Structure formats: structure tokens, C-alpha cells
Amino acid sequence: MRKQNKTKGLPEIAPNNPVAKFAHQFNKALVYADKRKYQRKAKHSGLEPFLVAFA
């Protein structure tokens, strides 16, 4: 193998990778609600089940 010449005079530019820069903000573990539990909460708790209209 032959020797490779190093390039002279070129300043090293730090690679800017925006994907790696912001990866810690988006790669987070999600916590899901346990769907196996029975929940006794009403969907619309503030509303009457049967609206009685007086004519």
C-alpha cells in the first residue's frame, strides 16, 4: 500500500448533523395507559344521560 499525503491548508470543519443534535428531544420512551384495567369513569360526566325537554 502506498502512503497517502495529508492535505495541507484546509481547516477542519466540524460536521453539523441536525438529526443527531436534536435526537435527545425526540427519542423518548412513551408510557401507555394500561388498557386491561376496567375504568368506571363516564365519557361525558358533566352531561345528563337523558335530556328531558318540556314543550
Rank of each mutant, 00 (worst) to 15 (best):
P11I: 02
N5D: 08
G46K: 15
G9N: 02
K6V: 04
P18E: 04
N16Y: 13
N16T: 02
I13F: 07
H44L: 14
L30P: 13
L47Y: 04
D34M: 01
D34I: 05
A14F: 00
K28Q: 12
P11F: 01
F50A: 05
T7D: 08
A14S: 10
K43L: 12
K41V: 01
I13K: 11
V19Q: 04
P15N: 03
I13E: 15
T7A: 14
A55L: 10
N16M: 09
F50W: 07
Y32W: 03
F50H: 06
Q4S: 06
L30D: 07
G46M: 10
L51I: 12
E12A: 12
Y32T: 09
N16W: 11
K41N: 05
I13N: 13
H44S: 09
A20H: 06
K41Q: 06
G46I: 08
F22S: 08
F22A: 06
Y38G: 09
L10D: 12
K3H: 05
V52R: 14
Q25C: 06
L51K: 09
S45M: 04
E48D: 05
E12L: 06
K35D: 15
N5I: 03
K21M: 09
P15M: 02
Q25N: 05
S45V: 04
L30S: 12
P15S: 04
V19H: 03
